[in-house]
Design a protein around this nucleic acid. Structure first.
Lengths: 162, 162
DNA sequence: TACTTTTAGTGGACAAACGCAACTATTCTG
DNA sequence: CAGAATAGTTGCGTTTGTCCACTAAAAGTA
C-alpha cells in the first residue's frame, strides 16, 4: 500500500464558515483584503501606493479644485488628523498644493499639480481596470446591481441621503 | 444682509467620486472601514476585539475541532506568520489550545477551550446581528443576492471552485 | 457687542498589525 | 535517497490609524 498523502482533518475546500457563511460583513472584509492587495500591486512604484485614501484624495482634488481636506476626510471615513498627514505626504510627492481658503480662515483648499494630474490619469485607468478585472467572473447584470446596492449603503453610512 | 454661513466650495453632499463612483472596489473598501469600526465597538472588552481574524478563527476552531492554523490562514487571507501570532494571542487569552498533529509532524491542531466556546456563542450572536443591522436598509431580496454574489467572489478569490 | 459652541487643522504619542524573508523540521515525489 | 514542497516560528521593518490635547477662526446667541 503506497504512502498516501495526508489530508488535514478539515481541508479548505470543505470547511464551512459557521455563522459567517451567511454574513455579508465577513465577505466584505475578506474581499476587501484581496482587493487591496491586488490594487497595491498594480500601483507599485506609483507614489500613491498603499491605499484607498491617497487614490481617492488624488482623484477628488483633481476633479474638484479647491476641495477641502475635511470634506475628503468624511468621504474616505478618516479623521482629520489622518487626513492631514495624508495631505502632507501628497505634498511631499508634489501631487497637490495646499493653500488657505480666502474666505474662511480655518479652512484650506487643495489643488492638483501637474504631476498630480498626470498621476490621476493613470490612476483612473488602473482603478477602473482593477475593479472590472476583479469582478470579471460576475455577470454584468449582477455587477450593476451590486454597485447600486453598495452605493446606497455607502451613502447611508456617511449620513447622506438622510 | 445677515452674515450667511460659509459653505465650502465642494460640500460633501454634492461631490462626485470621479471614476470611483462606478467602482465596486471603492465601495467595498469604504464599507469595510465602517463595518470594522462598528464591529470593534460591539466587541469591546470581549477578548477578541480588533478584527475579522480572531472572530473567524474562534468560530472555525469551535465548529471544526482539530482544524489547522494553515487552513484558517487561507480562509482569512493571511500568511502563516500572522496566523501564528493570532493563535498565540488566543492561547494567551485561553480561548483555544494548540497541539501537534499526531499523524503529521509539521502540523498542529487547534481545539476550543470552554472559555472559547462561551465566547463563540456570544460572538455568533453579535456577528449576525451586526451584519443584519448594518444592512438593514437594504431590502431582504437584495441582501440575498448580495450574499450570493459576494460568496462566489470570495470563493473564487481563494481559488476554490477553480 | 460679548460669550459660548462648533468647526478646521496640527502635532504627539501610542499601539497594533501585516507582510517579507530567513530558517527548521517534516513529509512528499520520483 | 535527493530534492522539492509544506507547516510553523521568529525577527525586522514599516505603515497605519486612533486618541487626545491644543490653536485659530467662525457661527450661534442674546
Amino acid at each position: 500500500m503506497p504512502a498516501k498523502k495526508k489530508a488535514p482533518p478539515h481541508p479548505v475546500e470543505t470547511v464551512g464558515l459557521d455563522v459567517l457563511e451567511d454574513t455579508l460583513s465577513f465577505y466584505i472584509r475578506s474581499i476587501n483584503i484581496a482587493l487591496s492587495r491586488d490594487l497595491d500591486h498594480r500601483l507599485e512604484g506609483l507614489d500613491v501606493a498603499r491605499g484607498t485614501g491617497k487614490i481617492t484624495t488624488l482623484l477628488l482634488v483633481d476633479s474638484h479644485p479647491g476641495i477641502r481636506p475635511s470634506v475628503i476626510a468624511q468621504l474616505i471615513l478618516r479623521d482629520r488628523s489622518a487626513m492631514g498627514r495624508l495631505v502632507d505626504q501628497m505634498i511631499d510627492h508634489d501631487l497637490v498644493t495646499r493653500r488657505n481658503a480666502p474666505d474662511d480662515g480655518r479652512a484650506q483648499e487643495l489643488h492638483i499639480t501637474e504631476k498630480g494630474a498626470d498621476l490621476a490619469r493613470k490612476v483612473r485607468e488602473i482603478a477602473t481596470k482593477q475593479s472590472s478585472d476583479f469582478f470579471a467572473g460576475v455577470p454584468e447584470e449582477d455587477q450593476e446591481r451590486l454597485l447600486d446596492i453598495l452605493r446606497r449603503v455607502y451613502r447611508r453610512t456617511l449620513g447622506l441621503d438622510q
